[in-house]
């Protein structure tokens, strides 16, 4: 009995710990979120007539929304794998490589700290806007830092005994890492993928400063441009609906990732 009571109170205590975060998140994130949903169901901010799903249909059928969505997805599909692969390799090298290589850690962390304004200038000197290449490279360049940080942190959490055991089994070098290290941090990898996907939706400032206009070439016209331009046209509904669509997309991805994570974690 006493044990049960203790268990119960332990659980409750743990739940109490959630309260500050929940309260804050509720006020500053949930409420705006609900507002956005509300705005997506009215005709405009000023007349506030309820129009049901009309906005959703309109946005979905909008050719520029489709173009933007396509470009954003393309960015994810192409850049994320490259980013993650690169991040894994770099993290492994930084964690287990020779000392001199390890000292290059800063090179990969710095990109995420440079303010966008100066980077856009430099990028403009190197790239032209003919292809999507500048935006892709910029995205990868900027996001490698966080991925590397998270992955290296995860790698340090691997207990050294496992390595000892593997070594005794005869594994070494790249094989060792492929078999042991990577699978062990798979949950973190999946999480990093998720995070990068979230960040891919934030690539706006960079693109905007690089092209210097609200209307970049059609290959770089992403969801953020769609949203930003509609904002300037006082059409908040387009923003609201397109972000809900994005979210649904991301939820699906999240669930998939979670499922994978559950499968791979022990």
């Amino acid at each position: 009995m006493r044990f049960l009571r203790k268990l119960k109170s332990w659980n409750m205590k743990c739940i109490y710990l959630l309260i500050p975060s929940l309260a804050g998140t509720f006020i500053f994130f949930v409420i705006p979120f609900v507002r956005v949903i509300y705005y997506s169901f009215i005709d405009n901010q000023f007349r506030r007539n309820f129009v049901g799903l009309d906005n959703y249909v309109q946005t979905f059928q909008n050719e520029f929304f489709q173009l933007a969505l396509q470009n954003s997805l393309l960015l994810i599909v192409i850049c994320i794998p490259v980013l993650i692969l690169l991040a894994i390799i770099i993290s492994l090298v930084l964690s287990y490589g020779i000392k001199t290589l390890r000292k290059t850690r800063a090179a990969f962390i710095l990109p995420m700290l440079i303010p966008t304004a100066s980077v856009a200038e430099i990028w403009r000197l190197v790239f032209t806007g003919e292809t999507v290449l500048p935006v892709y490279t910029l995205f990868i360049w900027k996001n490698i830092g966080i991925c590397v940080i998270l992955l290296t942190a995860a790698l340090t959490a691997i207990e050294p005994e496992i390595f000892e055991a593997a070594k005794m089994d005869g594994a070494k070098g790249i094989k060792l890492h492929k078999r042991i290290s990577v699978p062990l941090i798979l949950p973190t990898i999946i999480f990093t993928i998720l995070l990068s996907i979230v960040n891919s939706f934030r690539v706006f400032k960079e693109s905007y400063l690089f092209y210097g206009t609200n209307y970049p070439p059609s290959h770089s016209y992403t969801l953020q441009f769609y949203m930003n331009n509609n904002f300037l046209k006082l059409d908040y509904q387009a923003l609201a609906t397109s972000s809900v669509y994005t979210m649904i997309l991301v939820i699906i991805l999240v669930l998939v990732c979670f499922g994978l994570q559950r499968r791979y974690s022990r």
Binding site: V30, P32, R202, F231, S243
Partner: peptide, 30 residues
């Protein structure tokens, strides 16, 4: 990590969803 209650999973997923909202959209209601 340590508590268990009904809907914990959903709550957590909700957290992730909130994390996903692009800034341009949330900044106005915020």
């Amino acid at each position: 990590a340590n508590a268990s209650f009904k809907g914990k999973g959903i709550l957590f997923i909700f957290y992730i969803i909130l994390m996903m909202m692009p800034l341009q959209v949330t900044i106005l209601p915020n």
